[in-house]
Structure formats: C-alpha cells, structure tokens
Design a binder for these strands. Structure first.
Lengths: 359, 359
DNA sequence: CTGAAAGCGCTTACAG
DNA sequence: CTGAAAGCGCTTACAG
C-alpha cells in the first residue's frame, strides 16, 4: 500500500524520506548513518527532513539487517526480595545504565528466583540461551560467579560477548569476554588490619553462601590475613538475609562468655543485610556493640549509616563497578580487544560499631 | 551463500528447517506458531527438528514482520541512589518481571537522573519518544504521576499502550491505557485512625515532593481524616531522602516543648527512608520514640523492621502492584479492553515506634 | 556522488 | 493441507 511512497500517518520510514527528497533509500541511509557516499548538501537535506518528520530508525529493521540489537542483558539470579532489600544491585544497575545510556544502548533486565527454577543445575541458563538464540541482546554482564560456572561455556558456544563483574584477579580476558576484577585479598587485608589495630585477636566471619566464588575467597583471605597477624577466625556461612545473619551470629556466639578466649570480639559480615540482622541478634544475646563485640559489614550502604549503632563497613563505589563492566561490554560489542579492569579496593569506613577490644 | 539452504553453523533459520524437511517456509512458520494450515504430522516433524537443531525465532525478524517486540519499557525518573536505597522499586520490578516472564516478554529498564536532564520540563520524555519511534517496546508502565503529566499525551500520540501504576481512584481507563489505582483515602484513614486510637491529637506529616500527585493526595487525605476525628496536622514536604526526612523533622519540631499544645506527638513519613532519617533526627533532638513522639512510615520495608526502635508502617504487597500493572499491560498489548485494577488497601503494621500518647 | 537490488528472518494473505 | 511471493524497514556491496 505504501507503493507510492506516500508518507504514512504512523511510522516514518526511510522510504518516505527518500520519496519526499527524490533520492534513493541508500543515500538516505548513508546520510542518516554518517557514512560516506553522499554529498554534504544531500546529507543536510536528509537530516533536516528526518528531524522535521520525527523519523527514528526502526530498531527491529536495523537489528535484522545490521545484526545489532543495541541492548545488553542482565539476569539477576537471586531471591527478588533480597535483591530489593540490598541497594547493591540497584547501584550496579544504575552504573551500568549510565554508561549504556551514553551509547544509546538499552538494558534488558531479568530476575530469576532460584527457588522457582525446576532444576537447580539449570539455573538461569534458559534465559541466556533464549536471548542468544533469539538474538535479542548483543552481550551480557555476569554477577555472582560459582565453581564450574555453566554460563561462560554456554555463552562461548553462542559467541555471545560477556563481562564478568567481580571476578578474581586471576580471571583472564579471552576471546569473547572481559572482566572487572576485585581483589578480595586487598579488601580482606583492609578489614582484618582495622580489627587488629583495634586490638581484636579473635574474630568471626559470617559469609554469604560458599558456592559463590567471591564469598569463598573472602573467607580464605580473611583467614590467611588473620593468621599472618596472629589472629584466629571462626567461619560461618549464611544466605545473605538479615534473618540468617542473625541465626549465624547466634550459632557463632552461642554459650560463649565475653572475656573467655573462645569469644570472638568482632564479627565481620559478608553483606549489609546480614550485618544488621547480626546486630539485632547480638542485642538479643545481651551483648553490647561495640563495648563487647564489634561489628563490621563487608558492604557499605545506607543501611549501615542508618543503623544504630551505625555500622563500620568496607566502602566502595558500587556504581563504578557497574560503569566499568558496561564500559568493557560496550567495547567488546564494538569489536575491541577483551581486557580487564581492576576495581578500586574498598576503603574502610569507621563508624560506631567498631570499638577497641577491651578484654 | 545460504542459497542452497545449507544449515549454518551459527543461526538456524526457518529456511534451514524448511530445506531439511523439504517443505515451504510458510508451513514451517505455521507449524512453529501453532497456526492452522499444517497437518499434525508435519507440525510434529517441524517441532521435533526445531528443538533438535536448537532453533529460536529471531526476535528482530519477528518484530519486523509481526510488529511486536515482546518487550515493555520502564523508566525510573529519580535519583539512582534513592532508587537503590528503597526496596520499593526493586519489589515492583520483581512483580512486573514475574508476570512478564510467564508471557515470554522482556523488560527494558532505563534510569534517568532528574539532576542531569538538560531541561526540567523535558523530563524523561526523550526516552519514551525514542522507544516509540524506534518501535522498541510494545508498551510502558508509568510511576510517579504529576500534575499535567506530559507522558500520557506523548504516548497517546504514538499510540503506545501504557499502564499507570498508583493512579488515583478517579483515573479512567481509556483508549490505550489501564490503571492500577490506589486509594490514598483508605490508607490515610488507616494511618490516622491508628494514631487516634493511640491517643494522638496533633500529628505531623512529612510528605514526599508535592509535585507528585500521590503525595499531594496523601497530605489532603491525612488532613481531611484528621479533622474529621478532631485532630490537627502539620504538613512538611521533603524529598524522600533520609537526610531530608531528618531536616524536615527538625523543622517541624524546632523549639516545641513536649507537652505543649503545638507539639506533634506523632510524625508520619511519606516513605521509609525519611522515617528512618526522621527517627535519627528525633534522637538528636533528645526526643524519645515512642515515649514522647511516635513515628509511622507510610511505606513498609525491611528498613522499618531492622530499625531500632522498629517502625510502625503501612504495609502492602508492593510486588502485587507490579504484578497487577504488568498484567494490565499484557492485556492491553494483546488487544484486550483497558480496565482498572484497584490495589488492596495497606494494612497497618504495629511496631515499637508507635506508642500511646502520654501527654 | 547516486541508484537499483539483494538480503537480514520472519509472517501472512493468496493461489493451488 | 501446502507453496510461491510479497512485505516489514533497514543496510550494504555493486554498478553506474
């Protein structure tokens, strides 16, 4: 019906522009895309008309011919309630979004609740497979790495570029992927040394789930650094929730008498939610923070600031992590070489919950 | 190069399937889409081969011919830091995502920081315009309605379906839009009556920004209900942040002596962040919660539970709001009639911060 | 510098 | 029930 090239009421197409200007679609396309092959005067006329008629490229047509969707995907594989409670994810997303926005790229967001997946080993893989198969995204950013992570091989198979956010320093950039690495060793040193400076010699670490590589690494590094400084560590994994942070705290502290050698005078928590939950549990145990027990959160967030006593924490710009990963992904998609960015180490934020060990 | 229909290494297409099976692309398409026009045996063979070869429809090809992108867009027009700190948004997104997922639809997420937009009146409009022009989403969900909201007219002009989440009861479904309505009157009644039952007769309400319709309505309804019960109200708008919640609290309480008639014995906050910030400010003013002042948050979240004293709040299933809005949008996109869903009223959650007025 | 043409991978009337 | 063909709106060699 658009045989005559009459501009349609709804969508303005390059055919409309070409017809109106009496030139070919190709010239219009070249002009619009800043490609050589049109005179400057023609280009100007095309651009003027395009903006006058409110022309926008059809994303699907462009994607189909150009094989680029201009969007990247992120799957959050965690209990949505937890995701909501932790500012962490939103900050990362905000950072990612900031970079994508400047590149006129879009963010496709998916949340998969681990409790609802049919098979635990399948995880969120179907989402990636679908995205790859449908050609819906140009690349993805991965969080929360695990042992024998099944995602990279799947993405490699589909030649889908990806960036790992929060990979260890040993992660190597390869064919289709870059990494934003975080030094758990440096961060563990920062935390442990702060505790040591405050006279603590026996500490507990309530980590997140140990199937997560970074939690495993945190535990190892805390232990290693503590040993180096002549300190001892009790480890107790939990599930990142405030409730479980409390439960783990009680498990660690159960029956121990302040002042006794087994009593940990400080507890480090793998994230802010657990730290707040732990703080409440300590109160219930009638333990005074920080007089009897100090508390440190590995992640900083508004929760730590608003809590009372306020929580000492390892602070970092989470949105910077997001920005770096998005930057790397944009580069990969653009055909640049894979590379790694090492994230800035966390900075220790001293607040009320950390005190001098008085025992 | 695929002239011979040889299955490609990378992408499997319906041409590949058709060639392999010796039938036409049309038949393959009909079979794959559950359309009539193919025998059951043919359909079965197509389906079997498709799954064997791991065929997925190209999203862009399908979008181009079918004019459906199977994705919906959401723009968060707020300071990203605040977005991160409030579980509210993530819960809504999680609810939306849950519904979209079951319909095999995708969520496109955009965050626009109000502080970085060139022109205040332009807001996030360029994003919607772009999405509409590019045909990138099938519909959008709108939050945070304002007076003379410029988004609906723009979306109407582009014939882009939308759902308003959190519209007033008076919002009417029309051509391209449905609404999830929230009764601010019912919620205000719940909050005010709880305060009245506890003996409070003079209260303060620290609202969010008053250009937001729902904040304006909350203020009106709280005032109206309070008057009906013979109570008086002090209003003070703030910007939803914890800091500003504290500042507003100090502004409201400044110089007032507990026990004097002007002293508000309870403060209601428009969201949880401001409530927590207010709580801290009250402490700094040496006012005891709840002995001297009671505190109530309009939104419930983990912050309220973890705070100490824990905060009484108006509780509701935020993810249900998200689910409802996604449901309505999916219906609209599917060509169903616009309709409204009225959200369940909030339920008052009594916690430590609300006490009996002792003055 | 410009135009005619093929192609991206689907869907959908339209004939048989 | 099945196939040949046009079309969705772009991009991109390929000739002029």
């Amino acid at each position: 019906m658009s045989a005559l090239g009459t501009p349609q009421a709804g969508k303005v197409t390059i055919s409309d522009l070409a017809f109106r200007l009496g030139i070919s679609k190709a010239s219009v396309s070249y002009a619009l895309n800043g490609q050589p092959g049109v005179s400057e005067s023609t280009r100007a006329r095309v651009l003027a008309l395009a903006s006058e008629l409110g022309w926008y490229p059809s994303s699907s047509a462009r994607a189909l011919s150009h094989s680029r969707t201009d969007s990247v995907g992120i799957v959050l594989f965690r209990d949505p309630e937890q995701i909501g409670a932790e500012p962490f994810y939103m900050s990362i997303l905000a950072g990612i979004e900031g970079i994508l926005g400047t590149h006129e790229m879009n963010l496709l967001l998916r949340m998969v609740d681990p409790r609802t997946v049919p098979d635990e080993r399948t995880r969120d893989l179907p989402v990636y497979e679908r995205w790859a198969g449908e050609g819906r995204v140009d690349g993805v950013i991965l969080f929360d790495h695990v042992h024998d992570d099944p995602r990279p091989p799947l993405l490699d198979r589909f030649k889908m570029p990806y960036v790992r956010l929060g990979a260890g320093l040993d992660a190597l950039p390869s064919a289709g992927n870059s990494n934003v690495t975080v030094s758990q060793a440096a961060d563990a040193a920062t935390v442990v040394e702060a505790l040591h400076r405050h006279g603590h010699r026996r500490i507990a670490f309530v980590s997140g789930p140990l199937d997560l590589l970074h939690e495993e690494r945190k535990s190892e590094q805390i232990t290693a650094h503590a040993r180096r400084l002549g300190m001892s560590v009790v480890l107790c994994p939990a599930d990142y929730s405030a409730d479980d942070g409390g439960t783990a705290t009680i498990a660690v502290m159960a029956g121990l008498v302040p002042g006794s050698p087994e009593f940990p005078t400080a507890v480090v928590y793998g994230n802010d939610l657990m730290a707040v939950g732990g703080l409440q549990a300590l109160k219930r145990l009638n333990l005074c923070v920080p007089a009897q027990v100090s508390v440190i959160s590995w992640d900083d967030s508004i929760l730590c600031k608003l809590s009372s006593p306020s929580l000492s924490a390892l602070s970092r710009s989470v949105s910077d992590l997001g920005r770096s990963s998005a930057q790397l992904l944009v580069e990969l998609i653009g055909g640049h070489e894979p590379r790694n960015i090492q994230a800035c180490p966390g900075v220790f934020q001293l607040r009320e919950s950390l005190g001098r060990n008085l025992f």
